[in-house]
Design a protein around this nucleic acid. Structure first.
Lengths: 195, 195
DNA sequence: GTCTATAGACGGATAGAC
DNA sequence: GTCTATCCGTCTATAGAC
């Protein structure tokens, strides 16, 4: 097995474990165990735990960019793109109920830890934010586009948090529908309030 | 110093530290250091770390009940009560920017840890939920009261998460205003959609 | 002299780092 | 594979109130 492949396996395992258990509660031994390599081999690829976190964030950034590109390519228009974003809550419902949103929970944990790479992790939020902003701009929201993007980000984060607490599918579906309706208002009417 | 007072000091320090650093990242030594007692003394009052967590959650439940009662006593009516809830985001803005919402972040961390007391922690959410539901019932929302309570809970959780990521005061104020407007729609019009 | 509250040493386990 | 630090938890010792 090549070095590159081993490294990718490590990042992939770390990605999942950090999502499911949180960063601080994921140990080297956990990751090494999942990749089935020795801890010695481990240190050949990553010198510190923070380096792994960096690699995981980079990997998530790359994967997210690719997903957003795909959505944009497949969508009929900007409103359809936004619906793809809203649908995350349904498509990843079970993971979200168990572990929350991977973006929000990592950002919050790193904030509490006062971790140096928190700004890096927040770029994941910004990736969605600028992408959503572009969709709203194309929908004619003008100056409000960024506010609308932030509003929708917040809505989905809140639904994810409560989905984790209550594991209530009906609630998630209701809120997704409410976001659809909210979007339709933005599409059909003049740009304005975000209520 | 009496035993009761020492115990209260421990719970108080643990409450703050668990909020600021997270549960798993708060050690006995941290708490003992803040209370200025030895670790030995510590174990006289609490046998396990989970016992402290339990005590902290109980303390938060009691404190929250008291706050909700105060709000209800001071408010002009149910709409005013809901506004008090929304105002949490402004009143605790700086803490939220640094550490997130104490309810949501603890609930999410315990979910990831698969911790036995997660249901207990979620009772904090339920405390707000049933209280908000009562306000909406009094506002004439009928069957929708619980949905509206959950919706507002989710909105505030989402704003808290993004406030932690971006530390953007203008965003928080915008979203608070949007929730005010949303509430006014519920007060003035017939009960219906939550968009 | 017993009980309560406190202190601090000690143990095994596990962490990250080299 | 080893090293050091730190974790949680248990242990014994002690100081003072009653």
């Amino acid at each position: 097995m090549g070095a590159k492949e081993t490294r990718e396996n490590i990042v992939e395992a770390a990605d999942v474990l950090i999502y499911q258990r949180g960063y601080e509660n994921t140990s080297f031994a956990d990751i090494a165990g999942h990749v089935r390599i020795s801890r010695g081999n481990f240190y050949y690829h990553f010198k510190t735990k923070d380096e792994i976190l960096d690699a995981v964030i980079d990997e998530r950034l790359t994967a997210t960019k690719q997903i957003l590109d795909t959505w944009e390519a497949d969508a009929a228009g900007p409103a359809d793109c936004v619906r793809s974003f809203i649908d995350i809550l349904l498509d990843n419902r079970l993971d979200i109920e168990n572990y929350g949103c991977p973006v929000g929970t990592l950002s919050t944990e790193l904030a509490k830890l006062n971790h140096a790479v928190q700004p890096e992790a927040n770029r994941l939020f910004t990736l969605f934010r600028t992408w959503l902003r572009r969709q709203f701009t194309e929908l004619g929201s003008g100056e409000d586009a960024d506010d609308l993007a932030m509003h929708l980000l917040a809505r989905s984060q809140g639904v994810a948090t409560l989905a984790t607490a209550y594991r209530d599918e009906a609630f998630v579906r209701r809120e997704v529908q409410a976001m659809y309706d909210w979007l339709d208002d933005r599409v059909l009417s003049a740009p304005g309030s975000i209520s």
